[in-house]
Write a protein that binds this DNA or RNA. Structure first.
Lengths: 263, 263
DNA sequence: CGTTTGAGAAATGCATGCATTTTGGAGGAT
DNA sequence: ATCCTCCAAAATGCATGCATTTCTCAAACG
């Protein structure tokens, strides 16, 4: 049955997604959050722009309460800024901010790698990570990556990083890393969806895949410092990737959140 | 004028606070957030307990909307966990979690110190930090700290750390540090309010005050690595402080959020 | 011509009530 | 005694409407 005050039917349109729990919007708030995040990444809001809730609620076809909840969540993700009685402002980012975000992620994941080496109990705990790394290397060694191959690469990459973080056995560090990766250009999967696959980019993929194995080897050998250093350097691949994209003046659609970047 | 649906008058009771913007609750949501955070730190909720919104809203004398907003904020601060259609659960923490939190803050503040050394433009930017450090040292060298002296020490300590973070000139790192310090036992001011001031504790205060000067000196000399290492070690003072408190089986009221600690 | 003021318009904060979902336990079956 | 079934009670999600605050801009003032 429909809620009596609701004028519209079947607002929640369940879509077929892979397995992401958040991807299947079970509530108006989740729907609004997903839609808004996508709009922000796509650059449909100008940095510094004030968001008016009533028209936006009408546009997204949700009420103001779930919209407000979604906006607050996006504040915590770093997309927006909240001013107590003045509404929400779209954040802007500089290239330095992006570089710092990547460096920050490198630091945190590096710490996770070191902790992983220090706290490793059984060498067999590395098996799934090694399997993932092997799959990635095989994928990269193939001639040309198809669209599906690209998607699979991104999934495997996320999987590898999730394994790495889990090895640290630290809830607090895991939380910090998740928080640091909420912005689209800070995540390990950022700058991976570039369509222009230059030879340089292909080299970067190979280097990245090799680093995965070096990280595993260092953790297996309890070489905490080595694991940390390689992992930090591993994050730098994202930076080189971005620099390459900026140098070749790529279309902004290939750079996540490009429209939010100022100067 | 009062809102017509509201049955009670003058809900917002403005109190005299120092200067904290959030300390002067300008909205029901802010009021609820402050009250709930205090209740959580005081241990009025059991870890793992489910929070029912309706009775709690009645108890806090706010409506369910601002209460729900406050609960979501406390989720982001790390006090609570949200389950989509099942409400909020009070988080629990282990001593390892606390140690990891302190270590994490040390890492991030250490990075801020290194960046501060790398990005320092004018040596005069260190002047306010040096002044704060001098005030703290003078305070610690005095015979016995009064209650007001204690409060002042805590304020100065927060000031020093704020200066340090600002020197990094990194919005992203600043955000990460703020997020990492939201839990009461992770902040630089944690474990400072202990009433039992043992000789060991006094030594820790002196060591801490000295470290402040070493950090400043390292940044002034552009010794990024040294600044980072000392700052990491500086965070360890909080750990030693906590270990001392646990060893002497102090009353839980002196340990922030002690009631949320399990095992 | 730039600044201030004030009134109307619009936006946010939130109190309330209804629909849906979850929960907890009584009753029955195994 | 344990497990399943099902129903009532309670809890969450949110749509709506009102009060207060903020914003806008035009007219008056300096």
């Amino acid at each position: 049955m429909e809620q009596s005050p609701s004028p519209k039917l079947q607002k929640v349109t369940p879509r077929e997604y892979s397995q992401d729990e958040a991807a299947r919007p079970s509530s108006q708030t989740a729907r609004a959050t997903l839609a808004l995040r996508e709009m922000l990444v796509q650059g449909l809001f100008r940095p510094g722009e004030r968001i008016r809730e009533v028209p936006l609620a009408a546009k997204l076809d949700v009420s103001r309460i779930p919209l407000h909840l979604a906006l607050e969540r996006l504040v915590h993700e770093g997309f927006l800024e909240m001013h107590p009685r003045r509404g929400f402002i779209v954040q802007h980012f500089s290239t330095v901010d992006i570089y710092d975000s990547i460096e920050l992620r490198g630091m945190l994941e590096g710490a996770a790698a070191r902790l992983g080496a220090e706290r490793l109990r059984d060498a067999k705990d590395l098996a799934p990570m090694e399997s993932t790394a092997a799959d990635m290397l095989a994928l990269v060694r193939k001639s040309k990556l198809s669209i599906d191959g690209f998607r699979r690469y991104i999934d495997l990459n996320a999987e590898f990083h999730a394994h790495l973080i889990a090895l640290a056995h630290s809830r607090m560090l895991q939380r910090a890393i998740e928080r640091a990766c909420t912005l689209p250009f800070a995540s390990p999967s950022a700058f991976l969806k570039r369509q222009t696959i230059s030879p340089d980019l292909r080299e970067l993929f190979l280097i990245s895949a090799d680093q995965h194995f070096q990280i595993i080897e260092a953790i297996a050998g309890r070489e905490g410092m080595r694991a940390e250093i390689i992992t930090r350097e591993h994050a730098r691949v994202a930076r080189r990737n971005l620099e390459d994209a900026l140098r070749s003046r790529e279309v902004p659609s290939d750079i996540p959140g490009a429209k939010l970047i100022i100067a």
